[in-house]
Design a protein around this nucleic acid. Sequence first.
RNA 1: GCUGGCGUAGCUCAACCGGUAGAGCACCUGACUUGUAAUCAGGAGGUCGCGGGUUCGAGUCCCACCGCCAGCUCCA
Length: 650
Amino acid sequence: MTSVTVTLPDGSQKQTASGTRIGDFVRDSIGPGLAKAAVLAKIDGTSVDLSRTLDTDTRLEIVTTKAPEALETIRHDAAHIVADAVQRLFPGTQVTIGPSIENGFYYDFDRGQPFSEDELAQIEAEANRIIAADLPFKRTEVSPAEAIALFDGKGEKFKVEIIQDIVAKGATVLTLYSHGEWVDFCEGPHGPSTGRVGVIKILSSSAAYWRGDHRNKTLQRIYGTAFFDQKGLDAWLKQREEAEKRDHRRLGKELDLFHFHPYSPGAAFWTPKGTAIYTILSAYMRKLALGNGYVEIKTPLLYNKGLWETSGHWGKYKENMFLVEDSAAKAAGDPDPHHYSLKPMNCPSHHLYYGFRKQSYRDLPLRLHTQDVLHRNEAAGALGGLTRVRQFAQDDAHIYCREDQIADEVKRFTTLLDKVYNAVGLTYVAKFATRPEKRIGDDAMWDRAEASLKTALDGLGLAYELKPGDGAFYGPKIDFDVSDSIGRKWQLGTIQLDYAAPERFDLSYIGEDGKEHRPVVLHRAIYGSFERFIAILIEHFAGAFPVWLAPIQVAVVTVTDRVNDHARTVVDRLAAAGVRVSFDDGNGMMKAKVRDASLQKIPYTIVLGDKEVASDEVSVRTFGAADQQKMATMPFAAFVEKVVAEARFP
RNA sequence: GCUGGCGUAGCUCAACCGGUAGAGCACCUGACUUGUAAUCAGGAGGUCGCGGGUUCGAGUCCCACCGCCAGCUCCA
């Protein structure tokens, strides 16, 4: 019997017989504790099952339940288990695919009817019975012919289709994974047995399309999640509840920030409080833009289709635009009188603006900032809260510059973006998206474009991820994904390089050489859209905005009606200092009013009674202070100074 | 747009098998004049999303439409 050398991550080496299963090796040569916690192994960096054998000298790493990829693996295991459960309970249901996803997994089934709540509960119970049975996962290698025969025999048409596709791509050895009687075509890896998947929770079901294409057959998707133990599941469910409490749609109602009406789906009505947040963010961005070399312009909302033909939107984006009829053309019998459209983006307007005068190299970079209202006719099913709307405004800007100015402009932009995200406590990562398959422009252009963005990025000392093929069809881009206070990710800021638009709009500038040159355009945004950014901030702050953003900064409460007149002068003095203040002089007890202010998450509540009137002091209650009851009495003037300081733009 | 679920007072929700709509909060009025998270009493408020249909009778059953929600698709 030959012996192989196994090198562990700490550098230590162990000998074992060739052909030893990894799981056995871990238990016998390292320790039963580790064997129990092991889910997967990595051989020379590649994840494999613990059932694989050690056949040559190997660098071995054990992945335990603590590693994030172990959770991913058992969720993939869970997908198999759920599919098994479904086929046990509902024979005749065909399986398709079932990957693990961010917080769990899904599995798509072909079945005539959707799963009911009742059926989902049955499936969850059955899945957990399969876990309790602790069936080992077995990996088998088969030839394409064997695999096709197996699934064809079971009538699994989708599996056969998947296998044929993979074989067509050149695969010759396929792998099957089974537990108990149930078998799936799958690349793996999987955990050692169903028992290692501690607990499965079915979350929801919905429709999905075969291969994500809406022309294909509708499948029934079951979403679920899995954890090593109930404790992990409970913690996750609790966090989910917390996220629900922060849902901006819920807080929008509770804090009275905005409304929607069926007569204008996807377009918000902003209350005075919501409007305050909106205009503060608008003013903040305007101040930053104007202080950083941008100019602000306003342009029309409605345009003749000629503009959209020039920009290319009429061909590529028409479905998303709100078209407007020309009544004169209609009366004259024009078969398609939709000669106008509301703008879905600002760029074409900016390009027209650029062309209003002869531009010189001395004018570049020209940075045009606009916060105009945009309309996009989003699919009805895509709408949701403020994050997906039909009417919105972007903190938009287009930078017209020479190629050699791109790196500097990217740097200026990221500096600004960093300031804004820091101001609200959002952390972020940059993602560099390069040429997609469907694109315009030749390779030389893309080479230059990508190189200049890369140079800019590298010069920033900012860590970034690559997203090959994810660029816009007209140019590469850098996207900025932020994480909010409960760890959720949002794609927010972006800067995109565009060589195509200057061509289409025939934009030029006169260079130092006196000749015409083509500028490049950078599209960029930091908030993305005000609507979505506000939604994210509401959830990020759980509705408790910092003083500078809070729609109401100070609530005034009186101990007795006797001091209401004094309270009104306090309100006036605060308002005169620019403080956003509310005073409830209605019936009711002070305690109730303090409670109301607290529920409204107003940063400061000041209480006024006879004592305060006499001394011109205020008793200040700070929202969210470690001890929320914490109060401090301070001279009124000092309080005003404090609030005014905190209300300044960061 | 597709699949499924849902739509009752401003908000959150109730109404057995089809028998003619109710609560809490909010609102209004009055009393109370209070020291840091809910004072008491009274009042008003609904064409049960909209339109058809079945039925002696529809919030409840059926159809169509609108909207919302979860996904799919798409994206700021």
